[in-house]
Design a binder for these strands. Structure first.
Lengths: 125, 125
DNA sequence: TAGATATATCATCATCTAATGATATAATGA
DNA sequence: TCATTATATCATTAGATGATGATATATCTA
């Protein structure tokens, strides 16, 4: 059996992409693209619940996509690397061309996320 | 409530990234990086089961990441856009620097995939 | 036409995952 | 110190997801 790449490295890479593969985490990353934010600011910007944001930020930090820094009783988060933003940008550009395909893809129900208040359901493409 | 980006476009993007967020799909995409392949060739290269590969290819096609072309009783698949490969490349480079974080991230058990024969479990980073 | 080959589809099931709500921890200020 | 604020942790639960195995659908060839 020929493996084209080490399964271990594929696991790493899939784990990396998994950081981007959830709309809540994406909204957090997009928020941080504008510069460092405290947890509270991310909560405010994204409309997600505090515990949810904290969990996702922990996930993103564990995976190396964001860095955190304690500042008094606040914790400031920021993207760990310019390439995180580059990946998001490249995805935007790719999406612009394959949007129809992604739109029609119904294999995953990513559009039906549960939220605390339902506010984040607003659609404004 | 201020949304930093349309939730609809975030859904699209998360769906796009979801195509990359599974090690089986990544192995398929890596296989196709070398050029077009039939389903059988992908099965051979990745060591995944035929129905599994077919399901994932269908997923990747629905999401616009690959294109398919019937050739007799074979179906040839290829990456839909150079930027798909670019995303993989950029991820490789980012991974090289944040590898420690991703390695230590234990929030997702991506390393414990079930396979038909277990052959794909071989680790060769 | 019949059999073989290549691919797709689909139900099932075990497992994974995100959101919630409650609670814990930590830092600040009165 | 005590109350408040900011963030983290964790168990629970509903729902999503990947692999499998059986089967269906073409397509080719003898």
């Amino acid at each position: 059996m020929l493996m084209i790449a080490g399964t271990r490295s594929l696991d790493f890479k899939s784990k990396l992409f998994r950081g981007f593969s959830d709309s809540s985490r994406l909204s957090i990353l997009e928020a941080l693209r504008g510069g460092p934010c405290t947890v509270g600011e991310v909560v405010e910007t994204t409309g997600l619940s505090q515990s949810n944001v904290s969990n996702h930020l922990g996930c993103l930090r564990d995976c190396g996509l964001v860095l955190s820094e304690q500042q008094g009783r606040y914790v400031s988060y920021r993207l760990s690397d310019d390439r995180v933003g580059e990946l998001l940008q490249l995805a935007d550009e790719l999406l612009a061309d394959v949007a129809r395909g992604v739109y029609e893809c119904t294999r995953y129900n990513v559009g039906v996320q549960r939220t605390a208040t339902g506010e984040a359901q607003r659609d404004e493409v």
